[in-house]
Design a protein around this nucleic acid. Sequence first.
DNA 1: GACCGTTTTGACAACGTTATCTACACGTCG
DNA 2: CGACGTGTAGATAACGTTGTCAAAACGGTC
Lengths: 344, 344
Amino acid sequence: MPDNAEQRGFEIPARPTMKDVAAAAGVGLKTVSRVVNGESGVSEATAARVRGAIEELGFRRNDGARLLRQGSRTSSVGLILEDLADPFYSQLSRAVEDVARSHGSLLLTGSSAEDPARERELALDFCARRVDGLIVVPTAADHGFLAPELAAGTAVVSVDRPVTGLTVDTVLTANRRGVAEGVGHLIRQGHRRIGYLGDNPAIFTAAERLAGYRQAMAHEGYEIAVSWVAMGKPEPVGIHLALDRMLSGPDPVTALMCGNNRTTVAVLRNLASRPERPALVGFDDFELADMLPVPVTVVAQDPALMGRMAAELLFRRLRGERAQVQRLEIPTRLVPRGSGELPL
Amino acid sequence: MPDNAEQRGFEIPARPTMKDVAAAAGVGLKTVSRVVNGESGVSEATAARVRGAIEELGFRRNDGARLLRQGSRTSSVGLILEDLADPFYSQLSRAVEDVARSHGSLLLTGSSAEDPARERELALDFCARRVDGLIVVPTAADHGFLAPELAAGTAVVSVDRPVTGLTVDTVLTANRRGVAEGVGHLIRQGHRRIGYLGDNPAIFTAAERLAGYRQAMAHEGYEIAVSWVAMGKPEPVGIHLALDRMLSGPDPVTALMCGNNRTTVAVLRNLASRPERPALVGFDDFELADMLPVPVTVVAQDPALMGRMAAELLFRRLRGERAQVQRLEIPTRLVPRGSGELPL
DNA sequence: GACCGTTTTGACAACGTTATCTACACGTCG
DNA sequence: CGACGTGTAGATAACGTTGTCAAAACGGTC
C-alpha cells in the first residue's frame, strides 16, 4: 500500500503562520505581528509567551506576504551578465553583491550566455518577482520590453555595455581610449606593423576596442593591412589561423594587441608553439599575467569598480534621485610588464 | 518650492494590477487571470481585448501574490558560499545556476566571507523569501538554526564542506585522498622531506587536506619536522616566513605540497625571489598553471561538477525523493606538468 | 464606585493573485 | 415549451502579513 503523498512526489509540509503562533500562545494575530516586528505596546509577559510559541513552532515570517501587504520595495536586485564563471564578471558580481548588502538587499543572479531570449526571460522573471532594480550586461538586442518596468519604478542600470532601446544609467570601460593607449605603447617601442585580435564585433566592447586600435594607428598615419585584424570568438583554431596570417606573408606584424582576456590567453598558448616572439599587449588584466615566462603587459580594467559604480547608481535612483541619466566611463590603466616592451 | 515626493526621496509609481487591466478591458478580474495564465474558457474576442489592455498598461503579473495564493513552491534556490569572486566558487555557482535554470528556478546568491553571522543572516533571509532550497558552503559554526526550515520542507545541501548540527546531503572533494595522491607523487620522485602549506585549519577542507599529507607521509614511515607544516591565511608575510623555515635550517625540504589555490600562487610568487627550486604540487587547478615558467603540477578538483551534483541532489529532494541522506566525494585528478617532477 | 487616561490587545480590511462556485446566455433535445 | 447541457463570465473567499481602529484592562483620582 504505497504512500500516496510520496507517490505524487511532493508534499510540502505546512509552515506555521502567525495564526498558528497566535493560537499556540493564546493571543491575537496582531500581537504576534507586533512581537515579530519588535513593535511597542506588548507587555513583556505576553511577548515572552509569543516568543516561546515562535521558537517551539519554528515560525519564520513569510516575507512574500509581508511585501505584498506593505506594497513597498522588495529589497532585492537582479544581476544579469554573460557568464558568472568568467573572472571579469565574477569580480563585478561580488562588488554588486557587497553594495547590495550594504543597502540591505539580496541579489538574484543570472547568466544570459549572450543569448537575447535568455536575457529577456531572466529580466522579466526578475521583474515578476518585483526586484527593486536590475543591473544588466546587455546583449545587443533591443531592450524596449523593459520600458514598462522602468515606468513602474524598477531601476535599471547597464554595465560594461550600453543598452539599446532604453535610456538608463550606464557604466562602461573607456574601451577606445584604453586600446589606443595600449597600441600607443607598442608604437612608442618602435612598432608600426601591429596586429589586432578581438572578439565578435557584434559585441559592443569588441567593436569599440577595434575602433580604438584603428584610431591609434590612424593617429600615427600607419596603414592597417587586411590580414592584421582578426575578430571572432577566442577559439584555438581561429586564433591559429589569424596568427598564421599575421606573422607570415609580405607584411608580418611585429606586435599584437589583444582585445580581451580570453583572446590574450589563447594567443599566448598559440605563440608557445611558434618561433616568433612578437610584442604583445592584452586588454583586461588576468591573474598570473606577471608570472608568465614573459610577463604580459596589459591595459587593465577594473571590474570591481564597475560593479560598485553600477550598483551605487542603482541605489541612488532607488533613493529617488532624479539626476539626469548618467554614462560613466571607467578609465583603464596600462600595466607594463615586459611583453609590450619587446623589441622589433 | 521643492517637489515633496522628491524631497522624501521615494515615491513608487503604482504598478497596474489585474484589477486595473480588468477595468480597462471592461471584464471581470478572473477573466484577466484566465487570459494571463492561458486558461481555457475565454472567448477569443474577450481574450484579445484583455491582451490589449495588458499591453497598453504594461501589466506584469506579481509573482509574489501568485505564490502566496498558491502556497506552492517559489521556484527559487539560494546559494551561499565564501566568495563569489573566487574562481573555484564562481565555477561552482555557474553550474548550480545552470541546473536551477533547467528546473525553472531562479538563483539567489550570497557571499558569507567565512563569517558565521553573515552566513546565518543570509540563510534566514533566503528562507524568509521562501526559497525552495538552500545550497551552502558552510562555515564551521553550528547550523541547528536551519532545522525548522528543513522540517518545513526547505531542502538543504551542503557543498565543499560538511555542515555541523544538521544531517543533509553533502558533496565534498576527496580531500585526503587527493592530497595523499599529490604527496605520493612527490615521494615517487624521490622526495622525503616534503613541506605542507595550508589554510587556516579551522576550515574543514584545510584540516582534511593536512590529514591527507600526514597520512601519506606516515604511510611511507617518513617523519615530519615541525617546521615543515604551515597553516594559515595565504598572505605574503606568512608564506614568506613559512618558506624561510622550511627551506633553511638543518632539515630543508626538497618539495612542497600546497593546500589550495591561493596558497599555491602565493608560494610561487615568493619562490620567484629565492634561489631554491623545490618541487611543488598544488591542490586545486588554476588558469595558466600550464603556462608558467615551470608548469605547475596540481591535484585538480572539479568545482563545476560539485555544483552540479549539489544542485541535482537538491532538486531530487524537492521532487520528493526520500532516499537516505547522501555524502558524495568527488574524486580529484592528478595533473603532472613539471613542477612536481623536479629532481631532489 | 464612577470617571479618566494610558496601556495592551484584537477584529477587520487590505495587498494582488488564484480556486471555487454560481449565474447567465446559448442551443439542443425530448 | 420546458429541461438540460455547454461554454463564458464574474462574485467571493482565501493565501500570510500589516495598518487602522476600536475595545478591553488597568491604575489612579475624586
